[in-house]
Design a protein around this nucleic acid. Sequence first.
DNA 1: GATACGTGGCC
DNA 2: TGGCCAAGTAT
Length: 375
Amino acid sequence: MATVQDSAGRYSSSSLPVPQLRQALLGWYAECGRDLPWRQTQDPYAIWISEIMLQQTQVQTVIPYYHRWLEAFPNISTLAQASQQQVLKLWQGLGYYARARNLHTAAQKILSEHDGQFPQGLEAVMDLPGIGRTTAGGILSAAFNQPQPILDGNVKRVLARLYALKQPPQKVVKLLWQLSSNLLDPVAPCEFNQALMDLGATICLPKNPQCPACPWLNYCQAHQQNLVKNIPMTTPSQPIPHKIIGVAVIWNSQNQVLIDRRPADGLLGGLWEFPGGKVEPNETIPACIQREIQEEIGIEIVVGDELIRVDHAYSHFKVTLVVHHCQYLSGDPQPLACEEVRWVTVAELNDYPFPKANEKIITALLAQARGDEHH
DNA sequence: GATACGTGGCC
DNA sequence: TGGCCAAGTAT
């Protein structure tokens, strides 16, 4: 018997037949479940890596990263002993880079505090950086078949529709955890959790859900009330700011360019970039670039031609990078607003982890270098 | 509890 | 093009 909040905000009783729901879902999963790389192992390390990569990231994006990662770092020990730069280079392009930094730190913590063995208690697992309750439940159910519930985006949507919740999922998280826990099959928790996620990922889609193919069609309260299109409820999103950033590709007399490593925490932490900063009101781009380089690197430059403009959307703001070639004049480059600065050749850029927006700058640099050879 | 935190695909 | 969304966590 599950308790579901009704439209008036009161809690009313709902009694979907849990044993039949389990049987229907597991039967569907046996027939239609996805064959994914991390389902072919019970190694908690490999499963852990997949769970972290899959946070806010779709399966098709993760698969190539997953294989490359396990080849480079096949176990906890190899990951713990790698440098953060190696770790970030393998993560380059996946986004949410704190995930990679946390994996690295957690591997070292497992070596020092758990004798190198991945912990099997919920508390100990959630105590590792980057692992919340959903990821902990996912790992423990998949690797050790423990009856731990999960509540990711797929499960939230599936349960919101199954019980026709009239409120946005983020407002009823506690209830959703109860529902996930009540439904979880105690005999086959590993399969059940995977099945729940597959249902959300392949049938109970955000848009154009494939209801006729759903094993829960006859139980789904949203379907019975013709509310599938409206559930889960959403809250309007806030407008996001757009920043104009002046960026410098600074050349020295040895035909090297200057790059800097961002602070370890925060946006794109630990990644390298071409230096620059936000254009202030009534400031020209060249003036911005010259000022930012003086303030953050402590050197004098001459700002030259524009190389490229790069539009890029992050999750909570947008930027336009206006990138100019620059010529080094004088001063000793210092890491005044970053971790480190370094002169490198264009060919060496490939050895450093860069965010996507900077990859576009590098591509433009290489294209221009190729073009120059023909003149 | 709201916000910061990346990127790619879809329409 | 722009907005939405995807196997969430940390603060």
